[in-house]
Amino acid sequence: MTTTPLSNRRRRLTIQGNLASPSFLPWVERHSARLGLFCENLQAEETQVSFEVEGQEELIDALEVGCLLGPIDVWVESVEQHPAPSAS
């Protein structure tokens, strides 16, 4: 039996919504770490947060889905995922 090796991706996630809570960025970092992902180049405004992560596609997808729900004190309108500019 052969297995397909899991490949890493580097992606930029852009979250939009009502994100003004001070708890949100630490929550993003914690949730990423829980999935074994590390956030880099994080940029934050009240209505948009974006950052880069590298890891297995399925885990980045899980981070995207988790961020869509977010912590209780923010409202996430959308999460978009794109290849990170620094991707090789």
Binding site: H31, E58, D61, V65, G66, L69, G70, P71
Partner: peptide, 16 residues
Amino acid sequence: LDPALETPTRADLTSV
């Protein structure tokens, strides 16, 4: 309602 307790994936989009 906070996904930190359960980790939803793409298959869970209806639940999310």
